[in-house]
C-alpha cells in the first residue's frame, strides 16, 4: 500500500522543526525513525496532511554525560544505543531492552525518542524509562519544559506532549555496576521480532548482601507502562536471596489492568508479570 498524499517538511534545527509543526495546521505528524508511523500511514490508519521529518535535525542524535545524568538525544537510533559506550557503562537496562526491539533493520532507523513519544503499551522502552525515572525534555513554542516519566505516559498511545511540542532529550540517571546496580530486561514473546506480550525491566541495588533499592517497570500490563510498586517496596532492606525475590515478585501484578487480546488473556498476563519479575529480579540481583 502507498500512504495518502502529504506535504513533507525536513527541518535542520529544532527551531525550524517547531516552526514547521506550527505552520502545519491541525493535522501534523512528526516523523522520527518512521518504523511505526510509516507502517500505519501505509495502511492508511494515519493520513496526516503534513509530515515533519526530524532525521536531518542537528543535535538530536547522540548521548552525552551531564553531571550524574546521561542525556540521550531523542533521535538517537536503537542501533546507536546498542553501540554507545556511555550507555554500556551506565544504562545496561536500556541496552538490554533495546536489543529486543523489533529486528536489525528496524533498529537502524527506529529511535529512542520516537518509541517513547509513540507510547505503545507493548513497546519495550517506555517501561525502561519509567523504571529509571527518566526525565523528558520537551521543546515547544514557549520554550523548554521537563516532565518526569511518571507524568509522561498518560494513556494508550498518549503522552504529556502537547500539540506543537517536540520531545528533544531524555535524561537518565547513571546506574553503575560499581555502585551495586544489577539490571535485567525480561521479555516474553512467542516469535521473533514480536511485540512483548509482557516484559519486565528490573534494576536492583545491592549493598552488603541486602537490597537497598529496586526499580521495576512493566511492559504491556495496562494502557501505559507501570511500576511494580508493591514489589519494589517489599524488596527494600531484605537479604539478597531467591526466597525474598520470589516472595516480592508475587505482588508484581498488583494494581495492573492488562488487556485481553489474541496474544493473551488478562489473568495470564498477570501470571506472566509475576514469573518474569521473579526471573528479572533474580538475574539483576546476581542470583
Amino acid at each position: 500500500m502507498i500512504p495518502a498524499a502529504f506535504a513533507y517538511s525536513r527541518p535542520t534545527t529544532v527551531e525550524e522543526a517547531l516552526q514547521a509543526i506550527a505552520d502545519g495546521g491541525d493535522d501534523v505528524k512528526v516523523l522520527a525513525g518512521g518504523q511505526s508511523l510509516i507502517p500505519v500511514m501505509r495502511l492508511r490508519l494515519a493520513a496526516p496532511e503534513v509530515v515533519v521529518d526530524l532525521t536531518r535535525v542537528e543535535g538530536l542524535r547522540g548521548v552525552r554525560e551531564e553531571g550524574d545524568q546521561l542525556v540521550v538525544g531523542a533521535m538517537t537510533t536503537h542501533a546507536d544505543v546498542l553501540t554507545d559506550p556511555l550507555l554500556a557503562q551506565y544504562a545496561q537496562l536500556l541496552v538490554q531492552a533495546t536489543e529486543t526491539v523489533a529486528d536489525r533493520q528496524v533498529r537502524r532507523r527506529g529511535t529512542f525518542g520516537g518509541a517513547l513519544a509513540h507510547a505503545d503499551p507493548a513497546g519495550d522502552l517506555p517501561a525502561v524509562a519509567l523504571a529509571l525515572d527518566a526525565e523528558f525534555v520537551i521543546a515547544g513554542p514557549a520554550g523548554r519544559r521537563t516532565v518526569p516519566a511518571s507524568e509522561f505516559f498518560v494513556d494508550y498511545l498518549t503522552t504529556a506532549l502537547e500539540e506543537g511540542e517536540l520531545l528533544v532529550e531524555i535524561r537518565l540517571p547513571k546506574l553503575a555496576a560499581a555502585d551495586g546496580w544489577g539490571v535485567r530486561y525480561e521479555k516474553f514473546t512467542r516469535v521473533a521480532q514480536a511485540w512483548s506480550i509482557v516484559a519486565v525491566a528490573a534494576a536492583v541495588r545491592r549493598e552488603g548482601g541486602r537490597i537497598t533499592e529496586a526499580r521495576i517497570g512493566l511492559t504491556n500490563m495496562g494502557p501505559t507502562p507501570l511500576r511494580a510498586s508493591a514489589t519494589e517496596a517489599a524488596l527494600v532492606g531484605v537479604d539478597v536471596s531467591l526466597e525474598t525475590v520470589t516472595a516480592a515478585a508475587a505482588q508484581a501484578a498488583e494494581g495492573t489492568s492488562p488487556s485481553n487480546d489474541l496474544n493473551a488473556q488478562a489473568d495470564y498476563r498477570q501470571h506472566l508479570a509475576q514469573v518474569l519479575t521473579r526471573r528479572a529480579l533474580a538475574a539483576a540481583a546476581g542470583l
Binding site: G34, Q35, I38, Q105, R109
Partner: peptide, 22 residues
C-alpha cells in the same frame, strides 16, 4: 507490513527495510 525484510537494501551502508523508508 515491515515484517518480512524481503525489501532490505543498504542505505548509507546500513540495512533498512525499503518499504519503511520514504
Amino acid at each position: 507490513t515491515s515484517n518480512c525484510g524481503a525489501c532490505t537494501v543498504h542505505l548509507d551502508g546500513q540495512a533498512v527495510k525499503s518499504c519503511t523508508v520514504l
